[in-house]
Design a protein around this nucleic acid. Sequence first.
DNA 1: ACCTGAACACCGTTCAAGT
DNA 2: ACCTGAACACCGTTCAAGT
Lengths: 208, 208
Amino acid sequence: MSRNYAGLSRERIILEALHIIAGRGLGGLSMRRLGDALEVEAMAIYHHFPLGKEQLFNAIAAYVTSTAATSTAPADEEVADENAPEEDEQDPQAREEEDTRPWDVRLTDWADAYRARLLEYSGALSLLVHRAPRTPSSDATRALIHRALTEAGLTGEDVERGADALHSYCVGAVVHQVRHQDEEDAPDAAEAEARFHHGWRALLRGLA
Amino acid sequence: MSRNYAGLSRERIILEALHIIAGRGLGGLSMRRLGDALEVEAMAIYHHFPLGKEQLFNAIAAYVTSTAATSTAPADEEVADENAPEEDEQDPQAREEEDTRPWDVRLTDWADAYRARLLEYSGALSLLVHRAPRTPSSDATRALIHRALTEAGLTGEDVERGADALHSYCVGAVVHQVRHQDEEDAPDAAEAEARFHHGWRALLRGLA
DNA sequence: ACCTGAACACCGTTCAAGT
DNA sequence: ACCTGAACACCGTTCAAGT
């Protein structure tokens, strides 16, 4: 009654960790509790995350910040550099069809998706304060924003500064909403979204 | 060799906690380590924060988010309602002289001070994600922003939405900076401040 | 390769006791 | 009121061992 090929994987561990975080908060996530949820001894997790909880946190941060657009698992926190040689070197965006919609629509679309994902995993939000894991998804986002802002007429360092402002506003708005959501006069989800769009459009107006 | 009237106080505890957080990160703050730093047994802290670490975290969050403008100790996380009767009931802002500068200057002034404070205690930033303690300082800020935006010509719910957007951008920008500050191509402090102002002015332009 | 089980150092908190 | 000291349940992690 000893071997237990539980079919553990990094993704399964991350998903279960997120589930615990959603239910009991970040402070409620312990390696032992995570092991229990996975029906495994806590120490088994170290085989998939040899560097321990810190590495698991990094992987969770990478998972949360990867947009749904990138379908493949972004669970590894180190850049998987062993798959580069076989690929034909192309802009990752070139694989999908060209998005011909106006630049501001593309930008707003991204912002909505990003915000939704952060809200979905809001229990893990504080992990992102000291972590900005680089993933295929984060690279694609960077490219998307740069292309859109260039198309909007921005040049030179205005592009970088604009991108920073947009990013800042997105995570700031989610933090602001999460921060106040337990108050008695907190706006409901619809009003929160309306406020998000209000500020977002103002920022776009001011930048372009 | 037993009694130790260490002159412990909530403020001293918070300050020492912030010092530990600055040096070893939020995860490096333990009650036992905090006790050592204060030259006291860890359990002595519970006399000043009977609800334990969570209450200490709330007090730290309140301390960090209180702007320097409010000079009196904002260390208590419950609103100190026992000092109300003796005071003559006045708008707290009325005690200081009227600020006659243009609305956007007052707003930018506040934003700079708020940002500076968050950056100074950036190690405690993640505490703010799930905490928005109400303090005299937070009430004063709210009043300041509302007055300024009204003066800018905003009306109705535009005022509330504008205030939210400004707040969101401020904390978002600090989170964004802290999040990326360990990267090799991270902008220096001056460039970070320039980017903050760039987005801030854009947002003000777009809102007004 | 993948998981277990015992062990170690550390943690938050309670509680009775000291002054 | 303010602090100590022992105790309890829990934690992250190491390490040797099993399959």
